[in-house]
Amino acid sequence: MFEARLAKGAIFKKILEAVKDLLTEASWDCGDMGITLQAMDNAHVSLVSLNLRSDGFDKYRCDRNLTMGMNLGSMSKILKCAGNDDIVTIRAQDNPDTVTFVFESENGEKQSDYEMKLMSLDLEHLQIPETEYACVVKMPAGEFARICRDLSQFGDSIVISCSKQGVKFSASGDIGSANVKLAQSSNVDKEEEAVTIEMQEPVSFTYACRYLNFFTKATPLSAQVKLSMSPEYPLMVEYAIDDIGQIRYFLAPKIED
């Protein structure tokens, strides 16, 4: 059987909010090491890669590797039924047709269970090659969400340029143009408020606002976001999830016609 219990059940609620607008359905692969999910959006422009390590759960048991195909809209509806402070357990038999979500209140006085039908999904997994990125920017996740939202008003693309001086976000369109520059933090008391840049070479790439805004739905999961960029390679936007894992989004660039 499979059982994964997470005292901080709100993490599951936040994960579903972070993927449900981008993906309609996805396979959750469960094994000894933990739970992973990899899926592309319908347009095959972006990819979500989620990793939750087994040692990050309060209880984790997986007798046999299993793949559970789920409609994420349905899963999101179920997780909305969990309280923010609830303990969440996901349970399934070997070769399951259904998965059960159990929500327990902190004081143990309320317990609810929701059973959901699984789907048979024939999704191909993509190999994500290891790469050394030319630029890696770490910045407050809320700031990144704000910039993506603000610049989306100007056009459907955002140019992200990174150099030793800092990182610049630009957009232009019918109403005009916008630039937001962030310098590397010189002195930060709180690590989560810092902007840090690791750069091998300066880069400048154009990305679709629509997808960046989908990615920022993960903002409640993490104080910081990491943007990794390289020539001839998709952007990686990564949010750490407590001490249990991370969610990564990959986005293909836009190029000059």
Binding site: A43, L47, Q127, F250, K254
Partner: peptide, 13 residues
């Protein structure tokens, strides 16, 4: 500008 597909960079396992 045109949007590249992710499958141009990442390939099936």
């Amino acid at each position: 500008m045109s949007q590249k597909s992710l499958t141009e960079f990442f390939h099936p396992r």
